[in-house]
Simulated scan of single mutants.
Amino acid sequence: MKTEMDFEELMDEAYGLPNGPAKLGMLEEAARVADVNGMEERHTKQDRRLWRQQHSVVIR
């Protein structure tokens, strides 16, 4: 589905950016795309933890 791919692309691009306004804007756009298209969170905590490990994301 194109919408989901757009969401995933936005998320991947956002997590590749350094912390700051550009990253926040990209994450907000991904959230907007998800909301507009009625996407629901379907990942478990374990899925998110593995994704963050794979993408070297630090959440504080």
Rank of each mutant, 00 (worst) to 15 (best):
6 D>E: 13
3 T>Y: 00
58 V>Q: 07
20 G>W: 08
48 R>Y: 13
60 R>H: 08
22 A>C: 10
4 E>S: 10
26 M>R: 07
55 H>G: 11
8 E>P: 01
11 M>V: 11
41 E>K: 08
6 D>K: 10
26 M>A: 15
37 N>P: 02
3 T>G: 01
21 P>R: 14
53 Q>E: 14
16 G>T: 01
59 I>M: 07
45 K>H: 06
34 A>M: 05
25 G>F: 09
28 E>K: 11
57 V>T: 05
33 V>W: 12
49 R>P: 02
54 Q>G: 15
18 P>T: 14
18 P>S: 07
46 Q>G: 09
10 L>Y: 12
23 K>N: 09
56 S>F: 04
4 E>G: 01
40 E>S: 14
44 T>H: 00
34 A>P: 12
39 M>Q: 08
37 N>V: 14
19 N>D: 10
38 G>N: 01
11 M>P: 00
42 R>A: 15
24 L>E: 03
20 G>K: 01
17 L>H: 04
17 L>A: 04
39 M>I: 15
37 N>Y: 06
42 R>D: 14
17 L>I: 15
56 S>V: 12
38 G>Q: 07
51 W>M: 15
28 E>Y: 11
7 F>I: 02
44 T>N: 02
7 F>A: 02
19 N>M: 04
14 A>P: 03
33 V>E: 11
51 W>H: 07
31 A>W: 02
6 D>T: 12
13 E>Q: 11
19 N>E: 14
14 A>I: 05
11 M>L: 04
19 N>T: 06
37 N>L: 14
3 T>A: 04
35 D>L: 07
57 V>M: 08
53 Q>T: 05
32 R>L: 10
56 S>G: 10
42 R>F: 03
58 V>W: 03
36 V>R: 00
26 M>K: 13
32 R>F: 08
59 I>C: 03
46 Q>W: 05
35 D>R: 12
39 M>S: 06
59 I>A: 06
39 M>E: 06
51 W>P: 02
56 S>E: 13
52 R>A: 10
9 E>F: 08
22 A>I: 13
50 L>Y: 10
1 M>D: 05
57 V>L: 11
15 Y>I: 09
34 A>I: 15
5 M>R: 09
41 E>N: 14
42 R>H: 08
27 L>Y: 08
35 D>F: 14
51 W>K: 11
28 E>S: 03
24 L>H: 02
32 R>S: 05
49 R>I: 15
26 M>H: 06
51 W>E: 06
6 D>Q: 12
